[in-house]
Design a protein around this nucleic acid. Sequence first.
DNA 1: GCCCTTATGTGAACTAAATAACAATTGTTT
DNA 2: AAACAATTGTTATTTAGTTCACATAAGGGC
Lengths: 213, 213
Amino acid sequence: MAEHDIPRATAKRLPIYYRYLKLLLDAGTTRVSSNELSDAVKFDAATIRRDFSYFGALGKRGYGYDVKALMTFFGEILNQDTLASVALVGVGNLGQALLNFNFHQSSNARISAAFDINEDIVNTIQAGVPVYSLDDLEKQISDQRIDVAILTVPAPVAQDLANRLAKAGVHGILNFTPLRLDVPSDVRVQNVDLTNELQTLLYFINNFGGAEA
Amino acid sequence: MAEHDIPRATAKRLPIYYRYLKLLLDAGTTRVSSNELSDAVKFDAATIRRDFSYFGALGKRGYGYDVKALMTFFGEILNQDTLASVALVGVGNLGQALLNFNFHQSSNARISAAFDINEDIVNTIQAGVPVYSLDDLEKQISDQRIDVAILTVPAPVAQDLANRLAKAGVHGILNFTPLRLDVPSDVRVQNVDLTNELQTLLYFINNFGGAEA
DNA sequence: GCCCTTATGTGAACTAAATAACAATTGTTT
DNA sequence: AAACAATTGTTATTTAGTTCACATAAGGGC
Ligand SMILES: NC(=O)c1ccc[n+]([C@@H]2O[C@H](COP(=O)([O-])OP(=O)(O)OC[C@H]3O[C@@H](n4cnc5c(N)ncnc54)[C@H](O)[C@@H]3O)[C@@H](O)[C@H]2O)c1
Ligand SMILES: NC(=O)c1ccc[n+]([C@@H]2O[C@H](COP(=O)([O-])OP(=O)(O)OC[C@H]3O[C@@H](n4cnc5c(N)ncnc54)[C@H](O)[C@@H]3O)[C@@H](O)[C@H]2O)c1
């Protein structure tokens, strides 16, 4: 695995490249230039070329990139061949929306187990996914070899659940709660703070206006 | 308005500071140090002190910061006194979840109008918010002086709607679609790409593991 | 086969942000 | 009131990421 020393910022753009390449391929396009990509994904063309260059010389000078080859290449890097099982903890407003949206269609992940304390939904199937009692958390995570969890519970219980998830062997948490979680160093947290996104947008608009964030 | 030249990265942290200060105040805490803040919000203490310093000398050496004063100060910067009206375009899975979650409780914004093409919900009230026909988009945005929209529609119609929103006078779009929108330079787009967040998390876990993103 | 156009890959320059380190200043204790 | 402990505000340093600019190489036309 030679993909150490890839900048974090580059890694975050990989899925976006991949998604757009898939789109191009579906449309029958066979070649693409960094400038065309730039128009679509809105990163500077030089940034795109540099990103690609971390993985070697993937293009041809004067020609561009072969869509199919590039897509296949990134597909491997992003593990598109293996399907990751994900747990959803907290089947409320947001949890339901994520369940209904099938990540599977558009990515290499699917939510395979959900957890809640609400007796009305425990032991039901929601959007094709079984909702388990919280008591089964550790067992299901272990049995299903789940190593990523989506956390959509009320803030006051978020840290407790993060602790349990970490102990149960999860390696990543997509955290939708406003709380900044404490986790062991072998667990990666990705925060998605929707209220913050909206407030930041409002701040920029009120104080300046215009341009991308 | 002296708040030009505030780094983008700092601006994105302001709502997080504000939220935590409110929490402290509610708990009756009167003073706080950059180190205590650091524990809670998980940014380096030096980063926090630097962030604050852009706004002047807000603390006292050897003492820390006065919670109440600091909160009031940031409250003004974040326009907490005025309530921003926001439009929601696309009342599907995600749109419903955002409607049900009342931003108003936790921020200075509230969704005051929703739009969809689905006849089953047009002209109904969802979670206290009227759902209008798309035909009324321009009129409502103008009448209600809405300048931010949340976009939760299918990707294929996203650019069209962004065009209409921009023309109708909106200055900010919180974009949940995977599409990177083209907008006039006086419109700010904040992308929230949930599939990308999950895929990036998976990439990091598969290739390395551990630590915060 | 030669010339011309095109677009890559990358060294160098630039910009932004995070962190370290510490002198300056305040509150507190004795 | 002097000594001490704590914690800021900021200067300097380091790290990360973006963009420029161009020599280099490929393809396509003639
Ligand atoms: N919905 C949004 O648009 C939105 C926006 C910003 C932030 N958030 C954050 O996302 C989180 C979820 O929001 P929501 O609107 O879906 O909340 P919600 O109240 O609708 O859902 C929370 C769910 O968690 C379950 N739950 C409660 N305690 C639990 C426990 N100990 N273990 C397992 N499940 C438990 C509840 O039964 C409920 O189903 C919150 O932290 C919220 O602050 C949501
Ligand atoms: N739900 C998720 O968890 C999730 C995750 C990642 C990305 N997204 C993205 O968010 C967007 C919305 O997702 P969703 O799951 O809520 O989809 P959805 O299909 O449930 O909802 C889309 C809504 O938009 C409405 N709509 C369709 N065309 C419209 C038009 N021209 N004008 C106004 N409204 C229109 C539909 O009637 C529907 O109510 C999509 O772009 C999706 O890719 C969603």
